[in-house]
């Protein structure tokens, strides 16, 4: 038995799961006031949070919103109970911040766009613009109501019922907005 008795072959450490493991530690450190730990959290999550803010609110506001979200999360770290993934918690908070600010700054035009006149606005055929913009950037040009539903449903994976609750609309409105957004986005498919 001189040769090593073989150990169990275990899954190697999966880089994808490292953020989760590191979050658990960094969140506790940050909750204790460690700004460097919080910076690590920020670096890990900023691409997704910024992506969400950019698509939900547009390029111009995305930076400000992202900063607001991370400041708000810092303030509330103490209330993160750790029974959900930190990423999930942060994400939920981000959506609340984004939607909350929308409520405060909602424009007349937005209100008009919101929910009504959906059918009429659908182009019979996707209009092919001369200067085609990137699919991702095109999301920012969707009417705000349709855009939010599209981002939450097709990109972030929420169900209509959840979206309806978050946006305070009916599930039917959410479905109609989603369809509207998708019909419009057809024009921006890269071929």
């Amino acid at each position: 038995m001189a040769a090593a008795v073989s150990g169990v072959t275990m899954p190697s450490v999966d880089p994808d799961t490292v953020p989760a493991a590191s979050d658990a530690i960094d969140v506790r450190l940050a909750a204790g006031g460690d700004a460097r730990a919080y910076e690590r959290i920020y670096r890990r999550h900023v691409p997704r949070i910024h992506g969400l803010a950019r698509r939900m609110a547009g390029d111009d506001d995305a930076g400000d919103l992202t900063q607001m979200i991370f400041v708000r999360a810092w303030e509330r770290l103490g209330s993160f109970r750790g029974d959900a993934a930190f990423g999930t918690w942060l994400y939920r908070l981000a959506i609340n911040v984004i939607l909350g600010r929308r409520a405060a700054t909602r424009t007349e035009r937005e209100r008009r766009d919101h929910g009504e006149g959906v059918i009429e606005a659908i182009p019979a055929r996707p209009a092919r613009s001369e200067h085609r913009i990137d699919f991702d950037a095109a999301i920012g040009r969707l009417p705000p109501g349709a855009r939010r539903v599209f981002v939450l449903h097709d990109i972030e994976g929420y169900k209509h019922e959840e979206i309806a609750r978050m946006l305070r609309v009916t599930a039917g409105t959410s479905k109609a907005q989603l369809h509207r957004a998708r019909m419009l986005m057809r024009a921006h498919l890269e071929r």
């Binding site: 910076e39 920020y42 670096r43 900023v46 691409p47 997704r48 910024h50 992506g51 950019r54 995305a62 930076g63 992202t66 900063q67 991370f70 400041v71 810092w74 699919f135 991702d136 599209f150 097709d154 990109i155 998708r182 986005m185 057809r186 498919l189 890269e190």
Partner: peptide, 21 residues
């Protein structure tokens, strides 16, 4: 459209937002 939306990649913002935070 749906497939494309699912496949969107996130990227960090062009400007570093951390100093402000």
């Amino acid at each position: 459209v749906v497939a494309r939306a699912h496949a969107l990649e996130d990227r960090a913002p062009a400007d570093d937002l951390w100093p402000g935070i």
